[in-house]
């Protein structure tokens, strides 16, 4: 179902229409929240909050951007708020306990995945947001700029720096894996 139809259905019957929006976007919002939060329970709580916010704000959606971009913006802000609250609560800055994989772990797929997630979680939140939106969500620079309310040039430079940092964190994993195609 396309976004215009969903919005029309919400206008006709708010709850029934919103149900259609949930069906269409819950996968993407859940994945995004999981990417930011790491912990599945926390991610689900944040995803649920995102949909509550969407339900309360959908009447104010003015079609100045695409519905998906608007949803991403609310979801990213909710994730960043949750991360800040978590950081304050735990006095636990970004996860420094899990370090990038060493060579011993390189063969273990699960440990590699954990190392990658840890590395992304060590990034400053602004960098983490662009990496998640680009590498996991596959959004364009323009979309990311709209979601994060910044300029395309800022997205590009954050992405560049974030990749540089990830490269350092994941050096053992990336070494010797150069793809021969440009």
């Amino acid at each position: 179902m396309d976004d215009t139809t969903i919005l029309e259905r919400i206008r006709a019957d708010r709850e029934e229409g919103f149900n259609a929006l949930v069906e269409k976007y819950r996968d993407r919002v859940s994945r995004l929240c999981m990417s930011f939060m790491r912990d599945e329970d926390e991610a689900m709580d944040v995803a649920q909050d995102v949909f509550i916010k969407l339900y309360l704000k959908i009447g104010a959606f003015r079609k100045e951007s695409r519905l998906s971009t608007w949803i991403y913006r609310i979801a990213v802000n909710a994730c960043l708020d949750a991360l800040r609250a978590k950081k304050k609560r735990d006095c636990d800055s970004l996860d420094n306990t899990a370090m990038p994989a060493d060579n011993r772990a390189a063969g273990d797929r699960r440990e590699i995945a954990e190392a990658v997630r840890s590395a992304i979680n060590r990034l400053p939140v602004n960098y983490r947001a662009v990496i998640i939106l680009k590498e996991i969500e596959g959004r364009s620079y323009r979309d990311i700029a709209e979601i994060l309310a910044c300029r395309i040039g800022t997205v590009e430079s954050r992405l560049f720096r974030a990749r540089g940092m990830l490269r350092k964190f994941l050096e053992p994993l990336l070494d010797g894996e150069v793809i021969d195609e440009l």
Partner: peptide, 23 residues
């Protein structure tokens, strides 16, 4: 490209929040 593959693997699995819970 390598990072993209690694990140894709690392975040490939997630549990979508159930629709009835949201509603």
């Amino acid at each position: 490209r390598n990072m993209r593959v690694r990140i894709g693997d690392a975040y490939g699995h997630y549990a979508p929040v159930p629709a009835d819970r949201i509603m």
